[in-house]
Design a protein around this nucleic acid. Structure first.
Lengths: 155, 155
DNA sequence: TGCTGATAGACAGCATACTGATCGTCAGTG
DNA sequence: CACTGACGATCAGTATGCTGTCTATCAGCA
């Protein structure tokens, strides 16, 4: 970059490209999953619950990399749709333990092929080698900056 | 991926990683620029206006890769802060032409070093070669999926 | 047992995104 | 000139994401 360029081009800044990538990823997801009335974030919560049931909301939020102030409404919407259930914790009555309903499990199974297509479409512009390289670099960028987010991934 | 793995791990899905990267990018931006009361999106709008003045809101939104329904409120907040001004178009009275005020230009100059630091911090986990590779791949992914977004970049 | 600090969850308020509708203006045509 | 279709801007409604605050509850300790 020569001295003649006073400021970096907006479209070459990683922050801007990441923002556009996120818009694209959400858009493709909603397109592929429009028949299920499901958002990417809601899918993430359901996918976490598939791995482990009866998580309290804070733990659930951490595993899905969600902010604790966001998880409440999200879980409420999932409950309204009948995909999860909340029970007050027995050992700690502050906690609300969240788990998938049978409808939620069934729905996850059904939606999975669409979610796989989302990832395919996202990476479509890259060939096999490039996809592996891109994913490895992106994963490292995210992992090593994990603590810079208010909603860092945990456990 | 063997048959034993029924579904891809959430944390290996590009969509999820991109979402986390976006959270991190915003968080770092707000941290570096907290003294300026400026968001990444607001910065993008100001940076576009630095390149070309008196853009109507639709064109401005396209160049900053913003949705047309988002640009209104955004521009309003920037106007309240005194960084831009809006005038009704002379040739086409439907348009509102947006341009930087002197305060807006000065503010952009002042904030630029902080914005550069954001990009440095984001790419910190990668070495020089890896940064170039990552940026090239990310740019291609975004460009070739451009039309999948409701707010594709134009011009 | 009663006090204190920490934690889980909820909430208010703001900014970004998107869907879909509406309103005013423009431009081309009969 | 009136009609029609396209376009710029706005708005209502919903979802995510953040800051900051509050309440209920818990856990440790005097």
């Amino acid at each position: 970059m020569g001295d003649f360029m006073l400021h970096g081009d907006l479209h070459l800044k990683p922050g801007h490209l990441i923002r556009r990538a996120q818009q694209i990823a959400v858009s493709i997801f909603l397109d592929e999953c429009k028949e299920f009335d499901l958002t990417p974030t809601q899918y993430a919560v359901l996918a976490v619950l598939r791995e482990k049931s009866d998580l309290d909301q804070i733990t659930l939020a951490s595993r899905a990399a969600l902010d604790r102030s966001t998880i409440g409404g999200l879980v409420e919407r999932l409950e309204e749709k009948g995909w999860i259930r909340r029970t007050v914790g027995v050992e700690d009555r502050r906690q609300k333990l969240v788990s998938l309903t049978e409808a939620g499990q069934a729905m996850l199974e059904t939606v999975e092929p669409s979610v796989e297509r989302v990832q395919q479409r996202l990476l479509e512009p890259l060939n096999g080698d490039e996809r592996a390289v891109f994913m490895a670099l992106l994963e490292r960028l995210v992992d090593e900056n994990n603590e810079s987010s208010r909603a860092p991934f945990k456990k």
